[in-house]
């Protein structure tokens, strides 16, 4: 079992290598020793990582966590296999950056698209925005319907998984 976390658009793998005498985690193959996990419930936390104390704040989100460390906040999203399998790692979905409504759907299922081609135009906060294909491929699913609303992070379109070659 490997945990897949998306940080800033790239997916990272976290897993457990050992628990005794200390918790040892692997992040993308790099070993880290975790000690003194602080259980504070107020959101302020600390732990010792590779012998160094780090303090951070954390909140769980719907599909991941938000971490504040060194004066910066980072949103992490869990990538589950359902999405990964259909989308080949999460880079294959057109995702709503904010809640809004669909103004126009430019592509249909089966259409070939190139990276950067507009798939859907949305309106959010009185602002129209074009959402583009994240890579070359074929549209496998359009979940957006003109005039309909959606929530932030909603998947509006999907590309077919890359063909094996």
């Amino acid at each position: 079992m490997v945990l897949k976390l998306d940080l800033g658009g790239s997916v990272h793998h976290v897993t457990i290598l050992a628990r005794r005498p200390h918790l040892v985690l692997s992040v993308d193959g790099r070993r880290h020793v975790v000690q003194d996990l602080d259980e504070a419930s107020d959101g302020r936390r600390q732990l010792t990582l590779d012998g160094k104390l780090i303090a951070f704040a954390r909140a769980g989100s719907a599909d991941g966590a938000i971490v504040r460390l060194d004066g910066r906040s980072f949103a992490l999203h869990r990538r589950d296999a359902a999405e990964a399998s259909a989308a080949g790692g999460g880079a294959n979905v057109v995702r709503a950056p904010m809640p809004g409504t669909v103004v126009m759907v430019h592509k249909r299922v089966g259409d070939k698209v190139q990276r950067g081609e507009t798939v859907v135009t949305i309106e959010s906060m009185k602002l129209q925005m074009k959402l583009d294909a994240p890579r070359d491929g074929e549209i496998a699913e359009i979940a957006a319907h003109e005039g309909e609303g959606f929530d932030k992070d909603a998947v509006l379109a999907r590309l077919a998984a890359p063909a094996e070659g």
Binding site: M1, D80, A81, A82, S85
Partner: peptide, 13 residues
């Protein structure tokens, strides 16, 4: 139904 083997394992877990 699972979309992939990995998905099946995830559901299984």
């Amino acid at each position: 139904p699972a979309d992939s083997e990995e998905h099946a394992i995830e559901i299984g877990r």
